[in-house]
Amino acid sequence: MACKWVLFAVACCLVAAAQVRAWKASCQDPYYGSCYGIAHVCPPGCPRVCEVDCKLCKPICACDKPGAVCQDPRFIGGDGIMFYFHGKKDRDFCLVSETNLHINGHFIGKSKKQGLKRDFTWVQSIGVQFDSHKLYLGANKVAKWDDARDELSLLLDDQPIVLPPGRGADWESASAPGLKISRLQDANSVTVEVAESFVITARVVPITAEESRIHKYEITEDDCFAHLELNFKFFALSPQVTGVLGQTYSAGFKSPVKVGVAMPIMGGEDKFAASDLFAADCKVARFAGRAIESVAGHNFPEVACGSGSAAGRGIVCRK
């Protein structure tokens, strides 16, 4: 009997420890009074980073929403279809290209292992061109990860942006009207908004030892491959928008990926490759560096996505 009580006590301690380590999120919109401020434990699919759908009052994985770019890297298109685009390490690729908006992503990674046909890659930074401005968001190179240390770098037109400290702090640009950056957490998580154009949520995350073990990344102690997890929301895209992600918002786009397989791959590296993070020279580029009148009435339906596994398989999206 004594042994049973000892085992029970140990089990309780382990449960308590797990609860202490659990990450939580809460609704930040006071409009939803019955949900506002209530803490929710993050789902198993995103135990360290999640957000709360205030309308449903439940935690959701940001990486399972349309417009998401996460992991290795996994995209959820504007059409709600999940796909992978691996690109190549140390190269830049056009993610979105529109006449008045161009977004490139810089990929970092590890060289492909014997037997693999691709590199392990992650999006380390993005270069956003809108009108006549250039905005850089990037993850610093980090050896040992510390959640409390801010590893996100921001520059506007080559000038560093210094955000005020503290969750909820805002910064607004004097030179780029309508540009606002807000901290979602004390470190490593922000939203970037250009009024009537786009909102980008960016989080800096490391490759953990557990992820490295499961996926055989072989991450070493000198570099945890800190990278970005991104969510995009657009307000004024034209039906001709292109780019790895942008094309999924274009009129009449039909995804070429094989839906339902473990890793549906989006090809086209040759079409989307750019010579620099701020070069609008990929084969499908449309950026002209000037504002255009958006297409009236061209709105994209809200799509909700969910996955039953941490690996992201079996994602289902519904309008």
Rank of each mutant, 00 (worst) to 15 (best):
Ala236Ile: 08
Gly243Lys: 07
Glu221Met: 10
Gly178Val: 12
Phe287Ser: 03
Ala296Cys: 04
Ala18Glu: 15
Ala251Leu: 14
Asp64Arg: 09
Ile103Asp: 10
Lys144Asn: 06
Pro264Tyr: 14
Cys50Gln: 09
Asp29His: 06
Lys180His: 11
Cys54Met: 02
Gly308Ala: 04
Cys282His: 01
Val41Ser: 01
Lys55Arg: 06
Arg21Leu: 12
Leu179Ile: 07
Leu101Phe: 12
Leu163Pro: 09
Cys61Asn: 15
Leu277Glu: 14
Val15Lys: 07
Gly37Ile: 00
Ala25Leu: 03
Arg290Gln: 15
Thr121Tyr: 10
Glu218Tyr: 12
Gly289Ile: 11
Asp276Phe: 04
Phe85Ile: 09
Ala291Ile: 13
Ser34Gln: 09
Ala273Gly: 00
Phe130Ser: 03
Ile214Met: 08
Pro47Asp: 14
Lys4Gly: 10
Gln247Trp: 00
Lys65Tyr: 04
His215Lys: 12
Lys271Phe: 04
Phe253Ala: 09
Gly127Ala: 01
Ala143Pro: 02
Gly105Thr: 11
Ile103Pro: 00
Pro44His: 12
Phe83Pro: 01
Ser275Trp: 08
Cys282Gln: 05
Asp222Tyr: 04
Arg318Pro: 03
Ala143Glu: 15
Tyr31Arg: 06
Ile214Ser: 06
Gly166Trp: 11
Val259Gln: 15
Val41Trp: 00
Asp53Gly: 01
Lys89Ala: 05
Leu95Gly: 01
Ile38Glu: 15
Glu210Ile: 00
Pro30Gly: 02
Phe235Cys: 10
Arg183Gln: 03
Ser294Asn: 14
Val6Gly: 08
Cys46Asp: 13
Val244Asp: 07
Pro256Leu: 12
Cys63Gln: 13
Lys58Cys: 03
Trp171Arg: 14
Arg167Ile: 04
Asp64Cys: 06
Ala17Val: 02
Thr201Trp: 12
Val10Met: 14
Glu229Gly: 02
Val259Tyr: 14
Cys94Ala: 15
